[in-house]
Structure formats: structure tokens, C-alpha cells
Design a protein around this nucleic acid. Sequence first.
DNA 1: TTGAAAGCGGTACCAC
DNA 2: GTGGTACCGCTTTCAA
Lengths: 343, 343
Amino acid sequence: MKSNDKLESTIVDIARELRISPATVSRALNDHPKISHRTKERVREKALEMGYRRNKLASGLRNNRTYTIGMIVPRISMFFHAEVITIVQNLLHRQGYNLIICQSNDSRELEVDLASALYSSRVDGVLVASTLYTTDYSHFDVFVQKGIPLVFYDRVPVDFYPAQMVKGDEYRGGYLAGEHLAEAGCKNIAAIFGLLGCCLYKGRYAGFKAALKAHKLALKKDQVFFHELTHENALATLDKLFSSKPYPDGLFTANDTSALAVLEFARENKIRIPGDLKLIGYSNDPRAASVTPAITTVDQFPGEVARQLVAALNKLLDNRSKKIMEKPEALVTPVALIKRMTT
Amino acid sequence: MKSNDKLESTIVDIARELRISPATVSRALNDHPKISHRTKERVREKALEMGYRRNKLASGLRNNRTYTIGMIVPRISMFFHAEVITIVQNLLHRQGYNLIICQSNDSRELEVDLASALYSSRVDGVLVASTLYTTDYSHFDVFVQKGIPLVFYDRVPVDFYPAQMVKGDEYRGGYLAGEHLAEAGCKNIAAIFGLLGCCLYKGRYAGFKAALKAHKLALKKDQVFFHELTHENALATLDKLFSSKPYPDGLFTANDTSALAVLEFARENKIRIPGDLKLIGYSNDPRAASVTPAITTVDQFPGEVARQLVAALNKLLDNRSKKIMEKPEALVTPVALIKRMTT
DNA sequence: TTGAAAGCGGTACCAC
DNA sequence: GTGGTACCGCTTTCAA
């Protein structure tokens, strides 16, 4: 045993062993063009032998680059987000970036903490799908001010915020749903949305309303609900909706969790779907496909979102080193109606 | 504007503004007992005013502590893992730790990269549910050697590995499933497991076999299958299983994804469940509850796993500073049979 | 109660 | 092609 008492072997240790300078070792490990092939070989060999691993803290500190991207999502268990994360991670991994995934649990307080922690870790960029309750985005100001690439997606700021965005075509999604119900012959249509403070539901609601209007159908005030889209809330709303006639013959729920709840409610209350009630959900959650009857829903193409997200990030990362500030722009990703058995 | 040209404000900037030393600023920000209350106030105020944020890279480099824990899971989209992650994150957040979540996509190659990246980031500890294909765990040796807390859970090494473990009671889970089918009167029982290289299926298989044996039932060689538990694989196996009589009257699938596939196959092939075939899955995936008929399954108590995991980690983190090395030990978390409509 | 200064590990500028 | 060295931002002796 030589000097293995020390836990970490550093670039200096390698230099000492090889009787060369730390600078040379650093350059060799970074494949610097001006280092001789032989030296590189020797250094790499020794590094391996000594179990050397670059200390990212040190190099990040020196370089102002950590090759780490932070991502904040409301819940990793949501199908859409899990998909986006997976693809983003794979894409970034290829580029040599690491991804720090953080969950806000839909708590703005936690989101604030997470943003702060990511900044403290000096991530090179941040991807965010905010909580449903985030209306004040000032906890992200620090990234904007320091010129750290920041891209919002899915749940993006409703009011102007000086950052890049990738958003789904919520309006069109809502429109497609409304149109489909109308064309299926529904005359008395109801709908359940999330809170309109969130861009998602704002868009879906607007599109849905427009579609009904285009088909000369009204969306009556007491047939539209806005609340957090949980299983329980959906059941409560259905109780209300089916407490007095006339019952609706078409229902749009702005997520699939609620649509699943509808199925459950219908089964218990002998409401036939699609016979008595036609149903459309949103997100194309796999559960919507596996349930009986399979639920008609709107696909958000998480893969496409992920690709746009990484593309936008890359552009910002490039511009950053070139010190050019791009005007923030909103990219829109497609949606599509997936027709199944509930309509 | 004073010196706001510089993007980052550091402890030195604060010191200069306040005409005190950086050391004092550092101590004030860390709430050092010997700093006067007044100085602390002034520093904190100035820090806020200047938008100062501690640079974790620098403090981590200096302290050999990053207050960051790394976590490697096969897929965040799996219900069990999503649950564990969420609870682990919440627990660690309370303790002031950040969590880096990494996905191996069940690729050992990627797992190796991720382990290396986490070490490079000098995380204070690592939590791992390995890929199905990891049998060589040497990429984690670095953590063992440097005394960095390492805890495996769920998918743990089958052979001895010198690290702490938290594993589900797979044997008992398998036993409960077998016993339940036997007690339901099944005489011709089939089963689908994952590859036995993985501790999960090894345990579930052993328990299941033992239960059948205890009930004087045989598990025939051509009625047991071992393969990756995907939807497609399950359908293929079912084709085989139902290609010739006698058909099984009881089936255990070692995950819920496969059980869902069974439901789909049964529907298409007019097999009545539970009439013709009784079915048990594993994991208590929410989909198993929402489908019709709701699937009997085995709950793994992800919350309990998460708590044990964090407890084990904390113990190691404590011991580390005390420089005591604990003997690695395997903690076992409970499972429970959730009886529903398929049995 | 506070300050001066060394140093964590790696990189890059300036020499040679 | 290689070496010497200052420095990234923060913490922590040691000294006052």
C-alpha cells in the first residue's frame, strides 16, 4: 500500500505518482489536444488504478458549469410527467448531462425550496412544470437574472414571464373533446375542469366551450365544475350532477383520473357508458386504455414535449456561452383525440 | 447600482459591503454561536438584499458534505417506486437533504453511469433499487470503499454484498398468494414470475411453491413461466397456457401489469374471472383496484419501505461521522394480501 | 467576538 | 508539450 490511507485520490496524487504536474494530469483527463498520446495513456491508466473520480464540486466551482440540469415536476407518478422525465433524461444523458429530478407534490412552498436548492447546486439549466397553485413565479427570478436557462412546460405561467415555454395545445385538446361529444349526438353536455388559475384548464375550458358553441350547444353553468381533479372530488361532483334530472348525456373530464372515477360511479349507479353517458378524459393515461370500457381521451404526446423541451434547453445553453439573449417564445406541442369505447 | 455587474454575489461581496471579514459573514450565515446577534442581523439583511445564495459546490468541496442523497430506481413510472421516492423525498427534505432521483431504465449500463455520476457529485449517501439484470454490483464498490452510506432496497443483491438492505418479504408474499389460491379451491394452478436472477422473483417463487406444497398441490413445470413481466410477454404466455386443456383454474402473476394483461386476455377469450380462473397479482398498483373485476394482489407497503430506508440511511450517516462501521444487515418490510374480485 | 489565511480539487492562463 | 500557480466560494483553524 502506498498512500491509500487517504480516501479520495485526486489529480495531485496522480501527478505525484507519475512525477508530472497536476496541470498535465487535468489536461490529459480532459483529452486536451496538446498533450502527448503517451502521457494521456499513462495518466488514464494511473487514474484507473488509483480509482480516481473527478470531483464535480471542484470542477463545477472552477468552471461555472456542472453539466447538471434540474427538473421540477408536480408528481412523478403522473403518467404524463413520468414519460416526459424518462425521455428528457435519456436525451440529456447522451449529451453528457445529469438530471436532478425534483417533485413539488403540487406544493408551492416546496417548489420554492426546490428552486432554491437547484440554484444552490448551480445547475446549468432548469425545466419546470409548476404546481397548480403557482401564480407568483418570483422564485424562478434568480435563474432569469443570472441567465441560467429556464424552460417551463405543461403547466406554464399564465401571465407573462420572461422564460422559454413548451406548452401543450390545450385549447385544441378541449376543442377536440367538445367537438367529438357534439358529433356523437350529445345534447346535454357537462364538464369537469381543474382550477382556471392553471393554464391547462383555462385552455381546455376555452377550447371546449368554443367547440360546443360551434355546434350550437350550450354549456350550462350548473353543468360545469372547477376543482382539483382527484378521484374523490370527481365522485362528489358526480353525486351533485346526478342528483336531479335531466342527466347529462355527455361528459368531459379534464384528466383521466376523473374519467376513471366516472366509470366507477356509473357502474355503481347503473348508468350505461356510452349508452346513457358519453365520456372523454384527458392525458391518455395507460389506465384509460386498460379499463372497461376503454376511455376516449386526449393524447399529449409526452415524447414530443420532451424533445421540444430539450431542444429549447439546448438552444439556451448554446446562447448562454455566446452571451446572446433570445426572446422568450412559447412552443406548442400537438394533441390528438384517441377514440375508444366510452363515446 | 453598486457592483451588481457581477452575476453572483458571494460571501466576500457581503463582507466588503459590510466592512467585515468573509469569515464573519460565513459564521453569521451558519448561525455560529459566537457571532453577535447584531452582526447576524446585518449579514442576513445584506445577504437578502444582494440576492446571495450559498454556493453548494464551494461549501460541499470544503466540507466534504453536500447534503444531497442520490437515488437510483429502475423506472419512476412504476407505482411502487414512485411511492417510495415521494415519501423518501419528503422525509429527507425535512432533514435538510436534497434528493437526486435517477432512473436506470432497467439498463445495467446506465446504472453504472449513474452510480459514477452520483459519486462524482459527492452525494452523502445512495439508495438503490437495481435493475433486473444487475448481478455484478461492483459499480457500487466505490461507495463501500469510501464509507459512503449505501442502502439497497426492493431489488437487492442476491449474493452477499457488504451494504445495508431493506427488502420486502417476498417469500411471504408468494406464500400468501399460493395459500389464497389453494384455499379458494384451485386444483390446477399456474404462475408467471420474472427471471429468477432477481431476488424478488426468487423469493416469491419459493414462497408460492411452499404454499402449494403445504396444501398438497403441485406446481407443474409446464404451468410456470419465468420472463420479464411485460404486458406483451404475459399475453404470449397466456396463449401458450390456454392452447391445450386442461386449463388452469388459478393463476399467480408476480406483478400487476401481467395480471392486467390476464384480464384483457380473459375478456377476449371468454374466460370468466373468477369463475373459470382465479387471479392474483403483485404490488397493489392502483390500476389493479380500478379495473373490473378489481384484482386481488399483494401490497408491498411502499410507505413502510421508504421509512425503513431513510432510517437505515440516517443510521449510516450518523455512524459515518462517528467513524463506526456497522455490520450490514437486511431489514424486511411487511406484505399483505389484498383480497378483491378476481379470487 | 472577529480577522487573516490556508486549503478543499480542479482548471486555465502564462511561461518555457 | 509541459510546468507553475492563481483562483473558483466557502469554512475553519489559529491568533488577536
